[in-house]
Design a protein around this nucleic acid. Structure first.
Lengths: 242, 242
DNA sequence: CAGCTTCCATGATATAGATCAATTCTGTGT
DNA sequence: ACACAGAATTGATCTATATCATGGAAGCTG
């Protein structure tokens, strides 16, 4: 059975509409068949279930077909830092390549369908498919640049800028998946947002309220409607007239 | 002629004492010879000279033999965000892989000797040397985890924790290069430090003064001596008794 | 459905660090 | 050696956001 708005229920890479995101465009049909043998489509993961824990041996990276994932790492003192939110069409789990175990814990924020890409078999396959390895390096580079954008946000921006940036980022990423860029449900809590953006829950909540009073957004709990996208966008990109 | 303290004046990869850092340990002599043909040792770069600018086409990554590099990106509004400091034995320039041009600008903080690793030729060579590509993915993963550590630092830590963390990080990285872990010269300005850590120059300066008054460090301008390494370390790792 | 827990919103207050300002020190180039 | 622009330090004040505190709404569980 197919979801009414989003056809992601493919049973192989050939007819998965995500494929251009997690696989290079230039793969011919033969290569795709070989690759097909590597990728595993798992059971849907339910809210609050873990994909992997920090410290787990690194075996796979994961592509999201539907749902949402939060990744975070835990410091010695037990405090957590949310390092990313991942949406459909995105890949996570790179953090484990370094020393063969994951630095982050990954948990489902809602019911989520994943494709698991086992890494040992991937290396095998990519030996005969250099384009694939190149593609994956590109994906890792994307992770690097998005992390650096977050660094800039945390180092330089006010609470309003941070929240606006997150909303705009979510909007753009949903749009890329041909989902509504202006109406969506936040998969994460205010606390998660605050943790991710280096703010307290209270501040996040106040910023949401302020955005509503400025008619930038409408929100009812986790349901968000961006009513003034250009306005919110300009807030996200340095409103300071410095 | 060789530097008295650090033998980095190798004229090929075989006798470069950096090689275990930028190359996989398992390369046999034959492979190393082939690789040798790819890597270029450039003229020393002087202080304030640029290695590449944001927007430049991505052609190479760079290994540092001696000196120090700062990378930063510039937002639309012209403000800069320092994204990393790179020391001997470290590799930078990954940010360009994504869409074939650099997001960051890289500039020498002092006279610096680099090895340039042209990427098109690298891909060629690595086709017959899968271990090499794997090694480079590992290096990229390191960049990801170090970016995520910075994210945590920026999101969660006080000014003192941030500065202490940077000093400890520099100390560890110099130690890895068999240089003094407790006495060194900061290659970057207070302003660079502040920018990197999301603080103002004034705050950085005050923190340095405070660290001196606590007998954690001794500093004369850019010359630093860490006089209480364990103390500084514990400051870096969450002094809060939360 | 009652009771519990978690999430969210909002007000009052406190504070770390920003901002503004002035001074000294440093390094660079002539 | 001198002059000048930039780098660093230090002080006084201001402000954004944290912290503390409370109440209400929503979602779970038995």
């Amino acid at each position: 059975m197919r979801s009414p708005t989003l056809n992601i229920q493919a049973n192989n890479c050939h007819n998965c509409r995500m494929s251009t995101l997690c696989l290079p465009l230039t793969l011919d049909v033969g290569s795709l068949d070989r690759l097909e043998t590597v990728i595993e489509r798992g059971r849907p993961v339910h809210k609050q279930q873990f994909i992997f824990h920090a410290g787990d041996p690194f075996q796979s990276v994961y592509a999201i077909r539907s749902g949402a994932i939060k990744s975070y790492c835990t410091s010695e003192d037990g405090s957590e830092q949310v390092t990313g939110f991942y949406l459909p069409g995105e890949i996570f789990g790179w953090d484990g390549i370094d020393n063969n175990n994951h630095k982050n814990t990954a948990v489902a924020l809602e019911t989520t369908a994943l494709c698991e890409i086992p890494f040992n078999r991937f290396e095998e396959v990519s030996r005969t498919m250099p384009i694939l390895q190149q593609h994956f390096m590109r994906l890792m580079a994307k992770e690097i640049t998005s992390d650096q954008e977050l660094i800039t946000l945390l180092a330089k921006s006010s609470a309003e800028e941070r929240v606006a940036s997150l909303l705009i980022s979510l909007s753009n990423r949903l749009k890329r998946q041909h989902l509504s860029a202006t109406r969506f449900r936040l998969p994460m809590s205010r606390a998660d947002i605050g943790n991710y953006l280096g703010l307290t829950v209270e501040t996040v909540s106040r910023v949401f309220s302020r955005f509503q009073s400025f008619d930038l957004i409408l929100c009812d709990k986790k349901e968000i409607e961006i009513t003034n996208l250009p306005g919110l966008s300009s807030l996200a990109h340095k409103p300071k007239i410095t």
